[in-house]
Computed example of a mutant assay.
Amino acid sequence: MGIDNHDEHLALIAALPDLVFVLTESGRYAAVFGGQSNELYHQEHALVGRNLFDVLPHEKAQWFSDRILQTLTENKLMVFDYSLSGEDVDTLENQSGPEGLLRFEGRVTPFPTNRYGERAVIWVARNITERYQLEKQLIYHSEVDVLSKTFNRRKLFEQLEKSFYTFQRYQERYSFILVDIDDFKLINDKYGHHCGDKAIQHIASTCLSILRRSDILGRLGGDEFAIIHKVTDKDSAYVLAERLRNTISQLVIDPDCCNMKLSISVGISQFNSNDYTIDQIYKRADVALYVSKQKGKNCISLN
């Protein structure tokens, strides 16, 4: 006895490596196919007949529902990236698939008929967790300074450009703060580059512990850091710089390396309406930093 075309099609779909859902406009799981690999997917066939809002946290269910409506409204293939774990789905036994938060690419297209009693979409879910994690690592290494774990020079100036645009477009006020480790050459020459590295790491971690989430820290290179500070009042940049200077002046590099005390010199420039490039902002801060060095270090200057 032969297999009819419908059964053959179902067998082919069931053998697909990726999970295939038929989801209706109301959020009902009308059918689930494929995704037989336990290494990549949880076995989700128990979802059939259930509703998104019955098995997922409300916020996630609403996100999926919105994407279904968007696809039906656009009436074309849509592609969405999203994260989901087995713990998010009430009907699953977590032992049936991979652990932790997974990343998926959903390729969603309108179902061509009303076979399931209402409009529906075909949602093909592909596990892209490994690719996603690799991309995150590549982005991290392209943006972060390895030694200090702060933004590198390229990323810092990219952020400075964005802040400058925001300043010009929305009149939000910013300051640019240059921070230079005092006597860094002496630290390297007298105690070795290992202690110089320790000094850089100490300065970076101290700054990160004090800065607000809206502040951006990056290492320009060598012993120099920069902060993009979103101004809260006319003195906020100076107050922040003084807090950094005072905190760092009470630290030693590393008791196991050397007991030499750390200090910083600081130069501050404000974004102003006459600026037309970020170079002007940087140069004013650099001049202010030079003044701090000339005044004997461990101090703050504004320009």
Rank of each mutant, 00 (worst) to 15 (best):
L92C: 10
L92D: 01
T91R: 04
M78Q: 15
P98N: 09
L72W: 04
G100A: 05
D81I: 12
G86P: 02
L101R: 12
Q95G: 10
D88A: 11
N75Q: 12
G100P: 01
V79A: 04
G97E: 04
G86R: 04
M78R: 10
G97L: 02
S83M: 14
E87D: 13
L72N: 13
K76S: 15
G86F: 05
L72V: 12
V89W: 01
L102N: 06
L101I: 11
T73L: 07
L101P: 03
S85D: 09
S96Y: 07
N94T: 12
S85I: 02
Q95T: 15
F80G: 07
T91V: 07
T91I: 06
S96R: 05
K76G: 02
T71K: 00
L84M: 14
K76E: 13
L77P: 03
L102Q: 10
V79L: 09
G86E: 02
L102A: 03
S83K: 15
T91E: 13
T91K: 03
T73V: 11
E74M: 06
G100K: 00
M78A: 10
Y82N: 06
E93G: 09
N75K: 14
G86S: 08
M78P: 09
G100F: 00
Y82R: 02
E74P: 05
G86H: 06
S83E: 15
F80I: 14
V79K: 09
K76Y: 06
G86W: 06
F80K: 07
D88I: 07
N75Y: 08
L72Q: 10
L101K: 13
Y82V: 00
E93M: 08
P98L: 02
D90M: 07
L101E: 14
E87I: 13
P98M: 03
M78Y: 01
N94Y: 07
L92W: 02
Q95A: 10
K76R: 15
E87L: 12
D90I: 12
G86D: 07
L101M: 15
E99C: 08
S85E: 08
K76C: 14
E93W: 03
V79S: 11
K76T: 14
G86V: 08
D90V: 07
V79E: 07
L84V: 05
K76V: 06
L72H: 01
G100V: 07
E87G: 03
L72F: 02
E74A: 08
D81F: 10
Q95K: 09
Q95V: 14
P98C: 06
Q95Y: 13
L84R: 03
L92A: 01
S85M: 13
K76A: 15
F80R: 11
D81T: 07
V89K: 01
D90K: 15
E93D: 15
L72D: 12
N75I: 07
P98D: 02
Q95L: 14
Y82L: 08
L102K: 04
S83A: 08
T73M: 06
L77D: 06
D88T: 09
D81L: 14
E74I: 10
Y82Q: 05
L84W: 00
T73G: 14
S83D: 12
D88M: 14
T73K: 15
S96N: 15
